[in-house]
Structures are given as structure tokens and as C-alpha cells.
């Protein structure tokens, strides 16, 4: 079932009288339970697109349905936001309380959740992100990865069907990044959430079911990670660079060494080069 259905979506920002089209006729359907990664240069329209999905930006042109709700109808805004949580880049900007359980309960309180239900939902959200036991702690004392998992728990407590991640790992150290990626994997695999993840790290796209590539407000292509990342023309046109295994695949080809298939990960490249193993 299609959960996000954008048809010919258009959006312009206005600056000092000049119109700047940041999304230019994007048609993209995202299936329920899918993990979609969006790649593209700065200013390619990725974030503007994502902000339409949870109704942070109004639809100016085209059509958008989120969880079978028409995003053009202002009456649907709050319902859409309940179905669609968003995790941003900087974990420090996402806290509203100095006690973790209060921070996570904040969203629930705003949605008039019965007070008796709140503790159980907070507890469950923390358990899913692996932060149980931190209820009474302050978010400011945590590592970057832990902070970001708390931010995810805050979104998760509302129980949205869709979670948007806007470069949510870019400020973290490698360990924190891994923590957050594993958490996203769990949300996708075990909780059945639809994941839309914006990233500048092409390596992270290998985790997705499908990868969409944006350039200058247009959708250049959307396909499996292997098809997108091995398409050098597509990556080049979008101002992206392939990860090491794919770069190596083509450089080896130039030297007359053709591997059986285009490797996505380090492990796949090792397996292609050491077939005995």
C-alpha cells in the first residue's frame, strides 16, 4: 500500500522578490513499511520535500497524500503530523525538558493522551531505542548517539507510521552513527515503520530498500541501492560520489578485471576478490 503519494509536487521559496523553485514537479510514491533514502546535493530539494511529508510546508502545487490524507487540506495538518514524526540533524536542538521522561512525554501531552497512558508509552519508546533506565536522567549528559536515540524515542512515543530523518547521523561520531543506524534498522524491521532518510553519506544509502536521487528540485531517479549507486552517470549528474567498493569496481573494469557483480559494501568487494572465501 502506498503511504506517501506525491504527484507533480512543486514548491518555491521567495527571497527578495525572486522566486526560487526548490521542488520542481516531483512524483514519488513510497510504500508502507519501506525504507527510502534520499540523496542529493545541498539545495537539491531533499529537505523541502521531506518537510511536505509531515506538513511543515504547505502544498503550493501538485498533489500530496500522506497516510491517505490529502495534505492540501489544512484540516488534515495535525492528523498528518501525528502519522509522521521527524528527527533532525542536531540532537541538542530537539530537547524541551531537562528530564528525559518529561521530554518524551511532551509530544504525547500535546496530543491529549490520557495521563494514565503516558508512562507506559514513554517506557515502551525508550525500550525500543535501547535507552530504558534513563527516564530520570538529563538529556544533556548523554553522548551524541544517545541524545539522538532519545529524540527518536520522543517521536516514537506518538506511534507515527512514518519517521523522517534529516541528516540525523551527520553530527555524530562513528559509534553514535552506528547506534542510530541500528535503531533505524530496528524501527523498520521490527516496528514496521516507514522510514524516509535524508543523508549526505552515500554509504548509508546501501541500507535502504530504495534510493531516490534529487537534483535541482527534480527527482533524477529512484531504484534499488545497487542500481542507483552503480549508475555513475546518475551520481555524477546529482553531484554525488560513489562509495569505495563501487569506485573500485569501475576502476578494476578499466584494468580489464570484471567482477561478477557490482559490490555495494566492503564485504561484498572482499568476497568478489577472494572467491575462495
Amino acid at each position: 500500500m502506498v503511504i506517501i503519494e506525491a504527484t507533480d509536487l512543486v514548491h518555491s521559496y521567495e527571497f527578495e522578490g525572486s522566486q526560487n523553485r526548490s521542488i520542481d514537479g516531483v512524483t514519488l510514491h513510497i510504500e508502507q513499511g519501506e525504507w527510502l533514502v534520499i540523496l542529493g546535493r545541498n539545495g537539491s530539494g531533499k529537505t523541502t520535500f521531506a518537510k511536505h511529508i509531515n506538513a511543515l510546508l504547505p502544498v503550493q502545487g501538485g498533489e500530496l497524500n500522506v497516510a491517505r490524507l490529502d495534505a492540501r487540506d489544512p484540516a488534515n495538518i495535525w492528523e498528518i503530523r501525528r502519522h509522521c514524526g521527524m528527527v533532525f540533524q542536531d540532537p541538542n536542538n530537539q530537547f524541551v525538558s531537562s528530564v528525559i521522561e518529561e521530554d518524551i512525554a511532551f509530544g504525547l501531552e500535546n496530543y491529549d493522551t490520557p495521563a494514565g497512558e503516558i508512562p507506559a508509552r514513554v517506557e515502551r519508546a525508550l525500550a525500543i531505542v535501547g535507552m530504558d533506565g534513563f527516564e530520570k536522567k538529563s538529556p544533556h549528559m548523554l553522548s551524541g548517539g544517545q541524545k539522538q536515540r532519545i529524540a527518536i524515542a520522543g517521536v516514537l512515543a506518538i506511534d507515527p507510521q512514518i519517521i523522517l530523518f534529516d541528516e540525523a547521523t551527520s553530527m555524530l561520531d562513528p559509534e553514535g552513527r552506528q547506534e542510530v543506524l541500528s535503531t533505524i534498522h530496528k524501527l523498520h524491521a521490527e516496528e514496521g515503520k516507514t522510514i524516509v532518510m535524508i543523508t549526505h553519506l552515500v554509504e548509508e544509502a546501501t541500507l535502504a530498500d530504495r534510493v531516490a536521487v534529487f537534483s535541482q528540485g527534480k527527482l533524477l531517479g529512484v531504484s534499488s541501492p545497487r542500481e542507483v549507486l552503480s549508475n555513475l552517470d546518475l551520481l555524477h549528474n546529482a553531484g554525488l560520489t560513489p562509495p569505495l567498493p563501487i569506485r573500485a569496481y569501475y576502476d578494476l573494469q578499466k584494468e580489464g578485471v570484471t567482477l561478477p557483480c557490482c559490490p555495494l559494501t566492503h564485504q561484498e568487494l572482499v568476497e568478489a576478490l577472494c572467491p575462495s572465501k
Binding site: R41, G239, L240
Partner: peptide
């Protein structure tokens, strides 16, 4: 951390 948030070509 000068390259955080820059796309691959910008980096």
C-alpha cells in the same frame, strides 16, 4: 568539523 552537512562535491 568543517565538512558536516556538505554534500560530496562540496566536501
Amino acid at each position: 568539523e568543517p565538512i558536516v552537512g556538505l554534500d560530496p562535491r562540496g566536501r
